[in-house]
Amino acid sequence: MGEAIAFYTLAALILGFAVLVITARNTVHSVLFLVANFLFVAALYVLLGAQFLAVIQVIVYAGGIVVLYLFVVMLVNLKRPPEAHRDRRRKAGLGLAFSLVILAEVVAIAVFGLVQPAHLAAPKAPLPPEAADNVQQVGWALYTQYLVPFEVASMLLLVAMVGAIVLARREL
């Protein structure tokens, strides 16, 4: 019961802010809504028993990535938002319809799963990961089984960092 209330509230907030992100006229407002969205997603992770990931979500996404967005939005000080002038070649309606089709498809699959919940609805391992061990579990998996991907990811970040600096330089 408690979980249901929490889930529906969070879901509503997440979707609401997501809609605001893509509809806001002012890019800075968009960024703000994105932060709110990420914070509620983090809350959802807590609900799912993934505290470590929730905190990481806040630190990395909200604290790092979105700040970067905010900086860029401020650097790219637009006099005239791109949406201001209409472009006839653009078929936004088509995109919208296309997206809704995807949504319908995914929801259909999911609801189909609800009707026949045999393998999905009933948890195979019903216990959620024990709260106190969450960090340990993730850490253990990360540093044993997935050590190589972990290192690759760190290389990826390094490359991205170098790339970003090179791109942001005055002369390409």
């Binding site: 799912l48 391992a125 790339g163």
Partner: peptide, 29 residues
């Protein structure tokens, strides 16, 4: 990950956050 009681899902989520960070940095650059 919770459904299956397996932390691997969370590990992958961490990788995705990692990729997102890289994407944001390069994209914004």
């Amino acid at each position: 990950s919770r459904q299956l009681g397996d932390p691997v899902g969370q590990v992958f989520a961490i990788f995705i956050i990692c990729v997102a960070a890289a994407e944001a940095a390069v994209g914004l650059g």
